[in-house]
Nucleic acid binder design. Structure first.
Length: 887
RNA sequence: GGGCGUUUAGCUCAGUUGGUAUAGAGCACCUGCCUUACAAGCAGGUGGUCGUAGGUUCGAAUCCUACAACGCCCACCA
């Protein structure tokens, strides 16, 4: 074994080995209880980033943990075609060659996108493997593969037949750059500093004007009315008047509508039914014809003055405002911040656009999905997301699912010249009504999420009945970022209930966003992202995985810097060296069936076995409740602070016992047992190094029921064993460690060099402590580098010595000429003051009538014991201090 | 406008149901060590009135109220 652990050699080798052995393969015929997860399919738009690393590591931890716990696990991998996003990146690539999708034509363009898909799909798959993801690659799916496309068509037809899909002309969010409709969720609202224009609209009879306020003056060309609140007295007289719309030079009426807020602006609002969702509503209530004045690229068009035709909407805003100013029709322009929708893919300002689109009626689908959350059948981690989910479900609106792009599932609707509309899973040969074969399929494709929402079951072969789905559906956990709670999670739950009658998963784990050290979201455009593939060769996937979860509390954002991964790398290296040390001490391969019998266990053995039980339980609980940072801390502390710092150090002496082979083998086997347990506990988080060490350990040691698994992946996860818990030994060890630390502190504070040994005297507080510490005098000598130690209640204090009091036990360290009296006086004074403070506060509490009469008896008892102990320590420390000063 | 989250050491953050003599890590910093597992390491140390103000309680970082700062989500007042 090398002196430094090098993950780059090890990791790829083990992944290939696991693949070769088919360890990731899920067996639908297994009799074991199943545990299944479907991957949130990464978009094929590009390479994976740290957010994916976080997301997939989380799932891998769960999968590996459950696999070791004896479940038949299935982790379904796959990718998403990501309609608009992928089409955009491919169009951008084409633009560099001065081509565009229209010049290529639909078919050729789609071929280009498929090429892109293949390329990035390969990269993504490779990245997931580098991370160690133990998904069942034999099941891999893509949202546009044949089976999933079939599921999409089936769902569309079913919903249509159920009356839950309809087509209609409405105001929708339109991205003028992508030139497609968007759903409400795809329009991201951002606060924007803007202007509020107060425009004068003259009455048709020339008797004056009314002032209306708008943030988008260019839409005035499409105005169909001016509306006021019916209760607004100010405008009562204007009811009969008409407005002469400036520039457009049309007459428009006054209308009254309760929607209008009397308090805002002037209380009069221009109504543009074709370009504003509220105005559209008013238009419908008052039979106003929507007048479209923009085309699909948000350039001015339609029946408007020549001058503005073809102008970009923002250019027009400027030009038109200037013209109105020239006509003295602008009362004032105010600064105004408001929230404006942006395309979630290209960040262009969304235009409300009047057009013919397909929608899903959501209310009926939401009912069971809402109930599931209210009843806690589906659980959210952290739990606070439940409320967010419920709010959204309660206020759900219809879902616009048609997209005017080419990359995606084509809408399975055909139109016949006779007016017939055919909605069908299969391409119809002829119109059922007029028998014409001249049918035209709807040009639009479906929203990407219309395939994603079926993911948990479409990937399993639905709608075909099959054993695989029977075994693994519904799944168990779903891990994702909160950003797509509505886009995806909520809709999957709705689809799950509607099409399979089942909740598709029970635990929804919402993890945070990956950010840089200054809190900015990591993104390609900001140039602040860290590429997992650059980290892995240097630090290792294990280090990447461990570091990320070590520093991240459940649901909290992850802040990554270039030094973040040191934690995991250092930990891996520590583990490597401890293992190397142990394994190198095994000269001849040793074999044993069980742990040494109880009577052969030494104190430190019982102690580490007891501590191991706590660690095992904590790991299990932390992972099962998705608190991965806790799991990392638990294993880090156990492996490093307890196993390496104390246990292995304590066992060293026994390793060199060439003349007592029983003792030597006990020491090696117990260390091997503890190490193997650590490896198993850690494996879900750091799969590679644990497998590597596991194989080294197995080459030197065989242990029935412990190391019998060829791969650690398939070994059983350590179980909490109460019979090995030993609180009294843990207590004694705390005392021992505190005594050793006290001696070390004296040495360090007095700058005693490590190569100078000294002698110690311990005057124990009682005979029990005395016996225990005396039995550990060899260990104390070793850890504190002593040449001699006396533990005796009747021992005499050494003349001049460094002093400490631990739980009433007086500890003296003496080394001629190396203990600095002033240092010691300072230390002891500080200690005495600290104790005085504690004695005071404890005394106060115990003298308080309220405390003594109201606190539970055990708390009072504990407080009394604490007080007695403090008094003893204070007294002895004080005495040591005065002795020192008098010497 | 509604809702949620965060505020703890110089920095980044843990702290599960209120109670373990001293509120924990990592990094940074200081001191001493290349002690034959590990300098990516070892031993020791400095550093915190737990955002502010009240309240509940025998007891509050933890529960309640108000306030402040920052962040996020949702929302059809142009």
């Amino acid at each position: 074994m090398e002196k430094q652990y090098d993950p780059s050699i090890v990791e790829d080798r083990w992944y290939a080995h696991w693949m070769e052995r088919n360890y990731f393969r899920a067996d639908e015929n297994s009799s074991k209880q199943k545990y299944s997860i479907v991957i949130p399919p990464p978009n094929v738009t590009g390479v994976l980033h740290m957010g994916h690393a976080l997301n997939n590591t989380l799932q891998d931890i769960l999968i590996r943990h459950k696999r070791m716990k004896g479940f038949e696990v299935m982790w379904m991998p796959g990718t998403d075609h990501a309609g608009i996003a992928t089409q955009n990146v491919v169009e951008r690539r084409l633009a560099k060659e001065n081509k565009n999708r229209h010049s290529l034509g639909r078919e050729t363009f789609l071929k280009e996108v498929w090429k892109w898909k293949e390329e990035y799909h390969a990269t993504i798959t490779n990245q997931l493997k580098k991370l160690g993801s133990s998904c069942d690659w034999s099941r891999e799916r893509f949202t546009m593969d044949e089976g999933l496309s079939l599921a999409v068509r089936k769902v569309f037809v079913q919903l249509y037949n159920e009356g839950l899909i309809y087509k209609g002309k409405y105001i929708i969010n339109w991205c003028p750059r992508c030139q497609t409709a968007l759903s409400d969720e795809e329009a991201e609202h951002k606060e924007i500093g803007s202007k509020l224009y107060h425009l004068r609209y003259p009455y048709a009879d020339g008797s004056g004007y009314v002032v209306v306020a708008t943030t988008r003056p260019e839409t005035m060309l499409g105005d169909a009315a001016v509306a006021v609140n019916p209760a607004d007295e100010r405008y009562k007289a204007l009811k009969q008047k008409k407005i002469r719309l400036p520039l457009a030079n049309r007459e428009i009426p006054f209308i009254e509508d309760n929607f209008v807020d009397r308090e805002f602006g002037t209380g009069a609002v221009k109504v543009t039914p074709a370009h504003d969702p509220n105005d559209f509503g008013m238009g419908q209530r008052h039979n106003l014809e929507p007048i479209a004045v923009m085309d699909e690229t948000a350039h001015m068009s339609g029946d408007i003055p020549e001058k503005y035709k073809g102008m970009d909407r923002f250019a027009c805003r400027k030009a038109l405002t200037e013209d109105l100013i020239a006509l003295d029709l602008v009362e004032k322009i105010e600064e105004h911040t408001h929230s404006v929708g942006h395309c979630y893919r290209c960040h262009t300002v969304v235009e409300p656009y009047y057009s013919d689109q397909w929608f899903v009626r959501m209310k009926p689908l939401a009912e069971p999905a809402l109930k599931a959350a209210v009843n806690d059948e589906v659980r959210f981690y952290p739990a606070r997301w439940k409320k967010t989910y419920i709010d959204w479900m309660e206020n759900i609106r219809d879902w616009c699912i048609s997209r005017q792009i080419w990359w995606g599932h084509r809408i399975p609707v055909w139109y016949c010249g006779c007016g017939e509309i055919i909605v069908s899973e299969e391409t119809p040969a002829a119109c059922p009504k007029c028998l014409s074969s001249k049918l035209e399929q709807d040009n639009d494709v479906l929203d990407t999420w219309f395939s994603s929402w079926l993911w948990p079951f479409s990937t399993m072969g639905w709608p075909q009945e099959n054993d695989f789905m029977k075994k693994f559906y519904p799944t168990d956990a779903l891990a994702t970022a909160p950003e797509i709670l509505f886009f995806w999670v909520a809709r999957m739950i709705m689809a799950g209930y509607h099409f399979t009658g089942k909740l598709p998963f029970t635990d929804v784990i919402l993890h945070g966003t990956v950010r840089d050290k200054s809190g900015r979201k990591m993104s390609k455009s900001l140039g602040n992202s860290i590429d997992p593939l650059e980290i892995i060769p240097v630090y290792g996937a294990d280090a990447l995985r461990f570091s990320m979860f070590m520093i991240t509390a459940q649901g909290a954002d992850v802040f990554l810097g270039k030094d973040t991964f040191d934690i995991g790398r250092n930990f891996a290296n520590k583990l490597w060296n401890a293992s190397r040390f142990l394994i190198s001490n095994i000269a001849e391969p040793i074999s044993f069936d069980t742990l040494p019998p109880k009577e052969r266990l030494k104190a430190e053995d019982s102690w580490i076995l007891s501590k191991l039980q706590h660690a095992a339980r904590a790991m299990d609980e932390s992972i099962s409740s998705f608190r991965f940072n806790e799991a990392c801390h638990t294993i880090y502390d156990f492996a490093w602070r307890e196993f390496c710092d104390w246990y292995l150090e304590a066992k060293k002496a026994d390793f060199y016992q060439q003349d007592d082979l029983v003792r030597r083998n006990d020491a090696l086997s117990l260390c091997g047992y503890a190490l193997a347990s650590i490896l198993k506990l850690l494996h879900p988080i750091m799969p590679f190094i644990t497998e590597e060490i596991w194989s080294h350990l197995r080459s030197k040691m065989s242990f029935e029921n412990l190391l019998n698994s060829e791969s650690i992946m398939l070994a059983s996860y350590p179980e909490y064993d109460e019979s090995l818990v030993n609180e009294s030994i843990e207590n004694k060890f705390d005392l021992l460690k505190n005594c050793i630390t006290a001696l070390r502190t004296i040495r360090a504070e007095n700058n005693v060099p490590p190569d100078k040994t000294g002698t110690a005297v311990i005057i124990p507080a009682d005979s029990e402590s005395g016996q225990w510490l005396a039995s550990q005098s060899a260990a104390i000598s070793q850890f504190a580098k002593l040449s001699g130690i006396t533990v005796d209640e009747n021992a005499r204090k050494p003349g001049f010595a460094g002093t400490a009091v631990v739980r009433g036990n007086q500890i003296f360290f003496s080394l001629e000429g190396l203990i600095d009296k002033n240092v010691e006086i300072e230390r002891l004074t500080k200690e005495a003051n600290r104790l005085k403070g504690l004695v005071e506060s404890t005394k106060k509490r115990l003298e308080s009538e309220n405390f003594v009469s109201r606190a539970p008896a055990d708390v009072i008892e504990k407080e009394r014991e604490k007080y007695q102990g403090l008094l003893v320590n204070l007294e002895k420390t004080g005495k040591a201090l005065s002795n020192l000063m008098n010497e």
